[in-house]
Design a protein around this nucleic acid. Structure first.
Lengths: 255, 255
DNA sequence: TAAAACTATGAACGTCATACACAGTAGCTC
DNA sequence: GAGCTACTGTGTATGACGTTCATAGTTTTA
């Protein structure tokens, strides 16, 4: 057949395209249960707590039994990272801009609720069912805008990246980063104090001035919801401009 | 003293604020040499090649000697990630928009040249001299725009995130991702084929239609420079709108 | 009933980050 | 210059981890 093509093994597995075997004892597990166990551990103890041993213990199986279902730990992480993602909101008949805002916020909230996803997130393009569902819904929501498919995908990429950035910053500065917390840096304003102390005004003129003026004092400049909306609206404004441009082009073509 | 405050140890070290000791044998190494060695290894073999043992071997020292200079491997990675960053371009008297484009592209190119930075990049806010220098230059370039310091920082965060996203996508789809390459997925169009094969048109209507139409055929929709500019201009347009708004507010206040 | 196909197990290996005790070295104090 | 002190590099040891492999056990097929 023409488009016979071997998929990466974890992709085969994520999509349940494994050849089903009839002989031998019935498997006591399946990939979904293993992933769920791993996710439970990550939720409770962070990614560091997820080892083959700990996952296996949680599903009451010898460590090496997992390798019947997963080629490597890498693969397990990939599967986890996809199945930890909830279903996307449905576009309904929301205006595209509202849906994009909802979508991006949802995307970010996933990362805030499961900070380990920030580290587990494979930087390669999405191949799992859940993440692709998010992508599909976004493209649906952009249906009437006149953007072509490539542009829609680009929009999705950009918004995903923004969600990731924002979540990383909120999580990094707002709390939870063990490296900083150890040293007593508890929030944005402490972060600012650290910078103010360390920066030489001659080589860092703008930054050190800002810090000494106390930009981050009272968490202004980061962490709160306004900052998320700040960047989001930057992007949405840009997208809106693009859509408008396409619309006028379309009119011009037809007129 | 009022603002006596203990910094995280790797920050102290990155800024050379360690107490200098006069007693005992003179150290045969310093943090910079260690970081440089680790960076060399990462450049040659990727992050996976960087172990305490390999780094130590490269500087001709016993493995455990490194712990005189670095608290943990984590710390070493943090230091590496900062000192692998080159100096930022100087704003000169470029218009802010040109400089921001230059800055963001530079930011991204760093990640393309050293893909391991994508994995090493600490998701927490920057604390190293190099990254903060980039931040400072961006704030300088935004000097005459009327944005306040918090907004400038937000702009920097957003652009940094975009650079990271783009680099990750280019690197992930364009090549270099070992997971995909193994399975013969060499570029964007193969990625599209995989998706087309896997997606059920009923649950993924928009996406599967796009794939079957061959969005990614010929790398359209990803990877090439136009796609980078696409998102970048989205952001710059948004920023421009914000600056215009601030400017008119400023006039309104005065008039 | 025998073969075949598949599953789970336990032991073993190599790698890695890290802790610790020790030996050597250079400045400081007298 | 003697001896104390603080500091540096080494070697050994440990425990965790990912992964391989041979083996024993189990269910279906012939």
């Amino acid at each position: 057949m023409a488009h016979e093509r071997s998929l990466p093994p974890e992709v085969e597995r994520m999509w349940g395209r494994e050849p089903v075997s009839r002989r031998g004892p019935r498997p006591r597990l399946d990939l979904a249960r293993i992933a769920a166990a791993a996710i439970d551990i990550a939720d409770a103890e962070g990614l560091a707590g997820v080892s083959m041993a700990s996952v296996a213990a949680r599903v009451r199986v010898a460590t090496t039994a997992l390798y019947r279902y997963v080629g490597s730990k890498e693969e397990l992480l990939t599967v986890m990272a996809d199945s930890a993602v909830p279903l996307p909101p449905e576009p309904g008949d929301l205006p595209w801009r509202d849906y994009l805002a909802l979508w991006t916020r949802g995307n970010r909230d996933i990362l805030l609720e499961r900070p380990w996803l920030l580290s587990a997130a494979r930087l390669s393009p999405p191949l799992g069912p859940r993440r692709l569902l998010w992508l599909d819904r976004l493209m649906t929501a952009l249906g009437g805008t006149g953007l072509d498919d490539g542009e829609k995908i680009n929009v999705a990429t950009t918004l995903t990246g923004y969600a990731l950035t924002d979540a990383a910053v909120v999580h990094g500065v707002g709390g939870g980063d063990p490296r900083l917390e150890e040293a007593g840096v508890k929030g944005a304003s402490d972060y600012g104090d650290v910078l103010a102390e360390v920066l030489d005004p001659e080589t860092y003129p703008a930054l050190s001035a800002a810090m000494r003026a106390g930009v981050l004092r009272g968490a202004v400049g980061w962490v709160d919801d306004e900052d998320f909306l700040f960047g989001l609206n930057l992007l949405l404004d840009g997208i809106e401009a693009l859509i408008a441009r396409r619309a006028s082009e379309g009119r011009a073509d037809r007129g």
